[in-house]
Amino acid sequence: MAPKAELAHLKSDEPFEQVREVLDADGAVIVEDCFGAEVIDQILSELAPYADAPGANQTHINPSIAAFFGEHTRHVSGLASKSPTFVAEVLLHPLMLDLAAAVLGPNCADFQVNVAHMLVVGPGAQAQFPHRDEDVWVHMPRPRPEMELSSVTALCDFTQEIGATRVVPGSHRWESDRRPEPHEFADAEMPAGSRVIYLGSTIHGAGANTTEDRHRPGFHLSYMLGWLRSEENNCLATPPDIARTLPRRAQELLGYDVHDAIEDGGGYLGALDLKIPADMLASGQL
Rank of each mutant, 00 (worst) to 15 (best):
G27T: 10
A28R: 06
V29P: 04
I30W: 09
C34Y: 02
C34H: 08
G36P: 00
E38Y: 01
V39H: 01
I40H: 01
I40Q: 02
I40C: 02
I40V: 15
I43A: 03
L44E: 15
L44G: 09
L44K: 13
E46I: 06
E46F: 06
E46Q: 13
L47G: 08
L47A: 11
L47F: 08
A48N: 13
P49I: 14
Y50A: 13
A51P: 10
D52T: 14
D52M: 15
A53D: 12
P54M: 14
A56Y: 06
A56D: 04
N57F: 08
N57H: 11
N57K: 11
Q58S: 14
I61V: 11
I61Y: 03
S64Q: 05
A66G: 10
A67R: 02
F68E: 07
G70M: 04
G70K: 04
G70W: 05
G70C: 05
H72W: 03
H75M: 12
G78C: 09
G78N: 09
G78E: 07
L79G: 08
A80T: 10
K82V: 10
S83Q: 13
P84H: 06
F86S: 04
A88N: 14
E89M: 05
E89F: 01
E89C: 03
L92C: 11
H93Q: 15
M96K: 14
M96Q: 15
L97D: 14
L97W: 07
L97G: 12
L97R: 14
L97N: 15
D98L: 05
D98M: 07
A102M: 11
A102P: 12
L104P: 04
N107S: 13
N107Q: 13
N107Y: 11
N107C: 05
N107A: 09
A109E: 15
A109Q: 15
F111M: 07
F111Y: 13
F111R: 04
Q112A: 11
V113F: 04
V113W: 02
V115Q: 06
V115K: 04
A116H: 15
H117G: 05
L119P: 04
V120P: 03
V120E: 05
V121S: 10
G122D: 13
P123H: 12
G124A: 12
Q126W: 01
Q128C: 04
Q128N: 03
F129D: 03
F129H: 03
P130M: 01
P130Q: 00
P130H: 05
P130L: 04
P130E: 00
H131K: 03
H131F: 03
H131T: 05
D135N: 00
D135P: 00
V136G: 00
M140V: 04
P141N: 02
R142W: 00
R144K: 02
M147L: 07
E148Y: 01
E148L: 09
